[in-house]
Design a protein around this nucleic acid. Structure first.
Lengths: 404, 404
DNA sequence: GGATTTTGTTTCGGACTAAAACATAATGCA
DNA sequence: TGCATTATGTTTTAGTCCGAAACAAAATCC
C-alpha cells in the first residue's frame, strides 16, 4: 500500500456473508413478537424461506439464544408449531450506585428479572473505593445465586453523573460527591469471570427502560424526552428508539436549561436554571418543607390543598413548561416522560405542564405534547444497564455464538 | 398464515445477499476518499479482496455510478492504477422556493454544480400555484440544458416552512404566506419524466450542505446545531451526521425557544421567543433601521461603532446564548453553525455568543462550544435538496443499477 | 533487457440462500 | 377407523456471491 489511504475509513460493518445479519434478524423478530412465533412465523415475518429461517433458528437454539417452548394445543389444523422464545439462560447484570442506594439486577433475554438486590443507604460523600467494593460484593452474591447453566452476556453500571464514553471514567457525580473515578478498576477485580461493567449515565439508562421494555422489544414510544428528578434534574433524549448520549456523553443536562436569565444563580455558574425551580430541594424549599422531606409528602400536601405546596408545584410546572417547550420545539418529540421525584408528582404537574406546552410548542395545534409518568420501578438505571448489555447480544448474535 | 403476525415488522433491510451492501460500501468508499482511489485502494480500505472490489467496481462503472478516470503518471513502480471517481453523469435536481427567490441547482455525484438558475423576486403572499408553475418552468429549462446522456436520479424541493414527512404537504410557510400546499401536485406535471421533487424544510436541507460537502462525503462536523436566520429563525440539529427531522418533520423550530418567559409576545402565541430578539426584523428595529434594510448594512454599522447597532447585536448574542445553551446542554453538541442573516453577522456575534455559551453550557469547561458561519452560498436549500436525492443513490446503489 | 513491483483478471472452492420436493403431525369428515 | 387436508419442519439441488490463489498486464529499477 503506497497510497496513503488516510481517510478511507467508511463502513466497518464488513460482513462478507449475510449470515450474521440474518441471525440478528431472526433473533430480533422473536424478541419483538407479541406472541411466541414459530419458525414458519419468523419466515413469514422476515420474508425468508421456511428453510432458511429454520436453519438460522436452529443455530440460535443450539447457542442458547432461543428456546423451544412447549407447544400449547391450538386446535388449528396442520402440524403443530414449535414456539420460539428468547433464551432464558442468557442473562446480563445491571448495577447502580446512587445517592440513596446500591442495586444489582439480573435480566434474561426475555426481559425477566431473574435476580435482584437493593441496599438502601446514604452514599452522599462516600468513599468511591469502599462503595464500589460493596457493590462488587453485592454483584458477586447476586451472580453466585443464579441457577446452574446461566451464562452472563455482559454487565453495565448506572451512575448519577457524567461518564466519558471513551475511557469509561466517571468525570463528575455531584450527588455522590465523586469525581474522576474509574469504576472498572475498582469493580472488575471483585467480579467473577473478568466481567467488566460498562458505566453509563443513570438517566440515559433509565430512559432505555422506557424505550425498550425487553431486549430488542420497542417500548411504547420511539421518540421522547425523559426527565429524571433526582437531587438535581437529569434527562435523556430518545430519537428513533435510540438514546442520544451526545458526541461525548454529556447530553441530557436538562436541569441546566435556562428558564429565566434573570433568575437565581445556579451552582453550575449560570442563572435561572430549571433545577432552581423544579429540583427536589428547590421544590421543598418553595413548599416550606425541610430538605429531607420525601417527595411523596409534598405530593400529599399539594393534593390535600396546602397552598404553599400547590404554589411550589405550580412554579415547577411553569418552569418545566418553559424549558421543555424549547426542547420540544427543537427536536419535535411528542412525549415527555417524567421519572424520579418528578414522576411522583406527575399527576399534579401534568395539567399545568401540558397547558404550558400547548401554548409554547409550535406544533401543539397539530399534535398536543403529552406528559407521562415513568413506571416507578426502583433503580431503573440498573435495569437499563442490563438491557444495554443484552442489546449487544441481540444486535450481533453471531459474535455471541462464535464466542460460545 | 393463520397466526396474526401483527407486530412482526422488524428489519426491512431484508437483503438476502451481501451484494447490495457491498456495492454501497464500494461506492461510499470512493465518495469519501480524499484522492481518487483505484480498485486496489478500495479493496484495502474496505478489507475486501482485490477481486471482489474490482468486480463490484466494474458493475458500478457499467451502471454509470462510477467513472474510470485517466491515470496521471505517478512515477511509482508497478502497473499504473485506474482512479475511480463518482459518476459524473448521474445528477439530481434541487429546487428552492423562498420569500426572496426561486432557485434550481443540478448536482452530480461528485457534488459539482452542473446547472444552476436563480431568480430573485418578492414571493411573499404569492399564489402557490403560479409560483410553483414558474419554478416548474425554471426546472424544466434547467434539465433541458443538461448534456446528452445525463441521468437524473431524483429531485428535492426546499421550502421555508413545515412539511409533513408522510404526505409531503407544506402545512405552513409563514414567510410565503402559504398553507396546506401540495407541491407535488403542482410541480410534477411540469417536469419531464415524471420527476417528483421531494419537499423538505429549507433549514434541514441547508444544514445538510454543512453535514455533507458532496454526496456520501462527510462535512467538517458530525454533530452540530444549524441556525438559519431568515425573516424568522429556523434551524436543524445534526447528530451522527444525520439531520434530525423529528418524528413528524417539525424539528428545528429554534426561533421559538423561550429566552425570557416575561418577554414580548410572539406571533406563535408564546412569549419571549428567540425570534423576538434575534429575528431579522427584531434586530433591525433594535438598531433603529427600517424593516427592509439588508443585514449587511447592520453589520457595517455595528462594525463601524454605531451604538444602536452594537446594542442590537449584543442583545441578539445574549438571546442566542440563552437559547442555544439550552440546546447544547440537552444534546451535547460542540458546534453551532450560523446561516442566513445570522451568518452575515457571525463575526460580530461570535465573541459575545461564545462567552455566553461558555458560561451557560455545563460541559464548557471541558470543551468550549464553537460558533461558526455557514458558507454563504445563495439558495443552500437547493443544494441540500439535490444532495438528499443523491444520498438515496449512494445509500443503495443496487436499486439504481436494478432500475437501470 | 530482465528482475521487480503493483494492478487488475480469471479460476476454483466454499458459504449461504431460494426453490421445490419431501416428511411429519395434527384436524376434519365419511 | 381411515383417508383427505393442512400446516410445520427438513432435505435436496441449484444459483449467487465472496475469498484465495494463480495469472496477465504495465509500469519502474538496475
Amino acid at each position: 500500500m503506497t497510497v496513503p489511504v488516510s481517510s478511507l475509513e467508511v463502513g466497518r460493518a464488513r460482513s462478507s456473508t449475510p449470515r450474521p445479519a440474518n441471525l440478528a434478524l431472526v433473533l430480533r423478530t422473536v424478541c419483538t413478537a407479541d406472541v411466541l412465533p414459530s419458525r414458519a412465523d419468523v419466515a413469514a415475518a422476515t420474508g425468508m424461506t421456511r428453510a432458511t429461517a429454520a436453519r438460522l433458528a436452529d443455530d440460535l437454539v443450539a447457542g442458547g439464544l432461543l428456546d423451544e417452548v412447549e407447544a400449547t394445543p391450538s386446535g388449528r389444523r396442520g402440524r403443530p408449531a414449535t414456539p420460539l422464545a428468547p433464551g432464558s439462560r442468557v442473562v446480563a447484570l445491571g448495577l447502580q450506585a446512587d445517592a440513596g442506594l446500591l442495586a444489582g439486577r439480573v435480566l434474561d433475554l426475555r426481559g425477566r428479572v431473574v435476580g435482584e438486590r437493593v441496599e438502601p443507604g446514604d452514599l452522599r460523600g462516600s468513599d468511591p473505593a469502599a462503595t464500589l467494593a460493596r457493590l462488587g460484593t453485592l454483584a458477586a452474591d447476586l451472580l453466585g445465586g443464579l441457577p446452574e447453566g446461566t451464562r452472563v452476556a455482559g454487565a453495565g453500571l448506572a451512575l448519577p453523573g457524567i461518564v466519558d464514553g471513551g475511557t469509561g471514567v466517571l468525570l463528575r457525580a455531584p450527588n455522590l460527591g465523586w469525581s474522576d473515578v474509574c469504576p472498572a478498576d475498582l469493580l472488575t477485580p471483585r467480579l467473577p469471570g473478568g466481567l467488566d461493567p460498562v458505566p453509563g449515565n443513570e438517566a440515559d439508562l433509565a430512559a432505555r427502560t422506557v424505550a425498550e421494555t425487553a431486549p430488542g422489544r420497542p417500548g411504547p414510544h420511539r421518540d421522547f424526552v425523559y426527565l429524571s428528578g433526582q437531587i438535581g434534574i437529569g434527562g435523556a433524549t430518545v430519537l428513533d428508539g435510540r438514546v442520544m448520549c451526545g458526541s461525548s456523553g454529556w447530553a441530557g443536562e436538562m436541569g441546566h436549561v435556562c428558564v429565566d436569565p434573570d433568575g437565581p444563580p445556579c451552582r453550575c455558574g449560570s442563572t435561572g436554571c430549571l433545577e432552581q425551580y423544579a429540583g427536589r430541594d428547590a421544590l421543598l424549599a418553595a413548599a416550606g418543607l425541610p430538605r429531607g422531606t420525601a417527595p411523596a409528602e409534598l405530593a400529599r400536601r399539594a393534593a390535600g390543598g396546602d397552598p404553599a405546596a400547590r404554589a411550589a408545584v405550580a412554579g415547577a410546572a411553569r418552569a418545566l413548561g418553559v424549558a421543555l417547550a424549547g426542547v420540544l420545539n427543537v427536536l419535535d418529540v411528542p412525549v415527555v416522560v417524567l421519572g424520579g421525584h418528578l414522576g411522583e408528582l406527575a399527576g399534579l404537574l401534568r395539567p399545568a405542564l401540558e397547558e404550558h406546552l400547548g401554548r409554547r410548542v409550535l406544533s401543539a395545534r397539530w399534535r398536543r405534547p403529552r406528559v407521562e409518568a415513568a413506571p416507578g420501578a426502583p433503580a431503573a438505571g440498573a435495569t437499563g444497564a442490563a438491557l444495554r448489555a443484552l442489546a449487544d447480544v441481540v444486535d450481533d448474535p453471531a459474535r455471541w455464538l462464535g464466542a460460545h
